[in-house]
Amino acid sequence: MDVNTDLAMWSNQLIISAMIVYAVAMIFYAFDLFGGRELKQSEAGAASAAKPSNVRRTNRKTTTALLDPPQTDASVETTTGSGRDKPRRGARIGTSLLVLAVILHAAAVLTRALSVMRVPWGNMMEYVLTATAITVIVFLIVNVKKDIRYLGTIVAGGVLLCLGLAITVFYTPAAKLIPALDSYWIAIHVPIAILSTSLLYISAILAVFQILKSSQENKDPKWLRFMRRMPASIDLERFSYTIAAVGFITWTFTLIAGAIWAEVAWSRYWGWDSKEIWTFVVWVIYAAYLHARATRGWGPTKVAVLNLIGIATVIFNFTVVNMYFNGLHSYSGL
C-alpha cells in the first residue's frame, strides 16, 4: 500500500496553482466576452458585422435547414472580432493563461496518478480532477479548428468551480483502489465517460449561447448586446449538435463498456442499479435530442433546451446519484 505522500502533496499544491491561473484566465475571457471598452469603440462595426448574419438568416428561410450552407468560418471571423482590425487581446491572454493552467492541471493529475501508481479516477475527487483537465484540453483542441474562445469564460469558470469542489467536498486522500474498481475496465469505461461528460458540457454551453444569440437576433435586448459579436445562432446550433453527436457516441460506448464490466463484476450486464438507471436516462434524453433535431415542429431553441436537460441529467448522475443514492457504484470515496 505504498502511497507516495510527497507526490500526493505536490498534486494538491498544483491544483491550487492551476486554480489561481484559471481564475485570472476567466477574468481576461470575461473582458473579451463582455467587451467593456472595446465593445463601445466598435459598436458601429459590431452592428454592421451582425447584419450579414441577419441577411443570411432570411435567405435561409427559403431553403430547408438541411440545405443551409454552414459558412461558419467566415462569419466567426467577421462577427466575433469586435471590429475587424482590433485584435482580441483579452481572449488571447485568456487562452495563453488557459494553456498555462492546464499544464499545471495536467501535472496535478499526473503526480496524483504517480503517487498511487494507478489511473487517476478512482474516486469522485479524482474523477473531477481529470474530467476538468480533459474539458479544457477538448476546448483547446476544438479551438484550433474553430474559434470558440467566447466560451472561455464559462469553461474556465466551470473548471474553477469544479476544482474548488474537488478539494473540499469531494476531497479524498490518495490511496490504492478498492477491489471492486481494480480491473482493466476502469481504464476503458471511465476515461470515455469522462470524455463524454466534457463533450456534452461544451455542447451544452454552446446551446446556452445559441439560445441567447437567437434572442438577441430576434429582440436584441440591451443586456444581450455582448452577443452581437457571436456567430449566428444557427451556426452555434450546428456546432453544438456536432459536439453532442460525438458525445452521444462516446456515451453509448460508456454504457456498453459499463454493461460488459457489470457482467464481469456483478454477474449480470444490466440490473437497473441506480447508476445504470441514470446512465440510461441520460442516453435516452440525448437520443431524444438527436431525434428532435430531425423532427418537424421542433425549433432550434426547443432542441437546445433538450440539450440542457441532457447535461442536467449528466450532472445529476455524477453528483446526486453518487453521493445520495443506494447502489453498487459506491466508489465516491466519501
Partner: peptide
C-alpha cells in the same frame, strides 16, 4: 489498507 489516512483507512485492497 492500514496506511492511508482519513476515509481511505481500512478500505479493502485485495
Amino acid at each position: 489498507d492500514d496506511q492511508a489516512p482519513g476515509s481511505q483507512f481500512g478500505q479493502p485492497r485485495t
